[in-house]
Design a protein around this nucleic acid. Sequence first.
DNA 1: CCTCCACAGGAATGTTGGGCAT
DNA 2: ATGCCCAACATTCCTGTGGAGG
Length: 399
Amino acid sequence: MTDTDDLFIREDPIFVNKELLEINHLPDEGRIVGRDEEIGQLANAVNPAIFGQSPSNVLIYGKTGTGKSLCAKYVSGRLIRTAEEEGVTTAYAYVDCAQDSTETQAVQTIASSLNDAAATGINIPDKGISTATYYKRLWTILDTRYDVVLVILDEIDKLDGDDILMQLSRAGEAGKLTSCKIGVIGISNKIKYKDRMDERVKSSLCEREFVFPPYDAQQLGDIMQARSDAFHEGVLDDSVVPRAAALAAREHGDARKAIDILRYAGEIAQSTGADVVREEFVVQARQRAETDRFRELIRGSTPHSRYVLQALTVLSLNEHDDEAFRTTRIYELYEQVCRQEGSESLSLRRVRDLLKEHAFLDVIEQSRYSGGSAEGSYTEHRLLEDPTVVQSVLADTID
DNA sequence: CCTCCACAGGAATGTTGGGCAT
DNA sequence: ATGCCCAACATTCCTGTGGAGG
């Protein structure tokens, strides 16, 4: 091993502290921009936990990238530290309901993230046991290890039922828990989510409600400025942050997207060997952020789910004029895709459900029509993303 | 107002594969 | 090792739906 091996770059010329640009990075206090009031209210709602009492349940609304999960995690984290100083043992569990959409998966995630097999002697398997068993183990874990627990349910509207909310909010009253208290922080980006909630759940979950407004270009700029320490001194061209802020502000004030753009712009600079992040990289970076979000969405989906999407994509690419297609047309093409892949096609009924799932994840949009006189009624499906983008993502998601 | 069509979607039932107790 | 339980996925069967034209 010589110390003059120049095959590898020894020091990153662009980034010093790239973690600052990770999506899940929790900034220190003072780095959360424009959410002081919300943080204060949130803290106030969960404050009783510090004395070992039940925190208020909270529902947070706001579009994606308005800092909802960030603030929820941040407040929960500080609560745990403060409670500890008071001799109260607390913890929080974070569940992304888009990923764990069934009741079972969500309970499993909560239980396994709060469990410590060494301390409790309880094992939480990934699958194979009943929902009731997961609950039973979760209650035991909570009672033996904690005084108060906060459960953050992100994208709660993606959950397939209210059952888990019911269980969590009633656990104490139903005698399932003897000493531990539970607080639920629900996060939704659909305001109307509340309307379709069970009345009993609604009254207990919605003790406090907050709405997070989108960030404006100024705030987005501040947010990125606060994280610009991720880059080496002088590497960021002065025009980069304002440009990225303007782009992200135009797209509904999504801070997550703004930070993604900044990171990608840096990576583009890195891979092209540039020593400065230039303004023109920002535009390319935006494109890349878009495909990345989408790739994440379809990464977890089953092959047939992707074939269905593939069928719709091919239709959209071939016929630019009309961009919405009937279920049956998609199904015909889907059968063709299956033959190419050497796979047995699923039933029409099942494909209808798969399409509905895509609609739920905002990948496609469905609208129902009636043909009128003896023409029946039908549903049309439209891709929400650029077909060429979908095509390229599908192509390299082969695994 | 009723019919007719092309499909939507609810319900029941079957299949698969993993964890669990014995 | 073996049978059992259960969630997730899939199929089959069937009833429900909307609006132009009779």
